[in-house]
Amino acid sequence: MKLIGLIVVIATGLLLLWGVTDFPDWADPQSPASTHLSPHFLTESIEETAVPNVVTSVLGDYRGFDTMLETTVVFAAGIAVYTLLRRSRRKDLREKPEMIEEELPHQALIVKTICRLMAPFMQLYALYVIAHGHHSPGGGFQGGVILGASFILLAIGFDLKMVLKRMREKTTLVLGILGVLIFSGIGMVCVLLEKNFLDYSALSAILPATDIIMARSHGILGVEIGVALAVMANLVLIYVNLSSDGKYERGL
């Protein structure tokens, strides 16, 4: 098995090496990838969407449908992990002996205090990253991950119950669904306003004091918020289920 594996790996590697021989040089400004589509995004982004961060405008608008689906991927993973691991019946819960509930000595005061201090600042920074994605590196995913990480940090520093007290299972599930619903809902609103799916320019009809270009900018902000909610909630959901084996007891 190992030998076959090695042969497959070497064959694949050689194939890929052969492919590289015809690649354009690394960082070549004249390569097709840099001359075919990207100049359009770079030069038109501000005119068409009023967003200086081109990554955000491509992510949220030009290829917004990809982004909606990747949010759905996170949602699918969250639901998949939840479906596989969550134990709801009492019979399942009794399978294994209960863990000892006593406080572990190494969970020192310093760790707890630092985690508790860090969490609000992380969350504040996450909100900044989400809201400022139009002008600086950042956006829904990055912000959502930081938000999720702040909860996971609390779960590691204290225990799972601490997090579950602040974010109940139902809240997490609802937020995860709400995030994807915001994104696809904005898309559907555009359809109802008789434009194509995710064509945010349609939103200028319902947003006050917005022209077509600014409507796109606001639309991107709206979907970024949805993305952030979905990513945060589903990461927490995945972590909580994985670390407690679906029993929601104390976690790691």
Binding site: H36, L37, H40, F41, D61, Y62, R63, G64, F65, D66, K195, N196, F197, L198, D199, Y200, S201
Partner: peptide, 13 residues
Amino acid sequence: NYRIGGWMPPFGI
């Protein structure tokens, strides 16, 4: 052909 987001291909999906 259906342009998602109203963008002309190949720029949009």
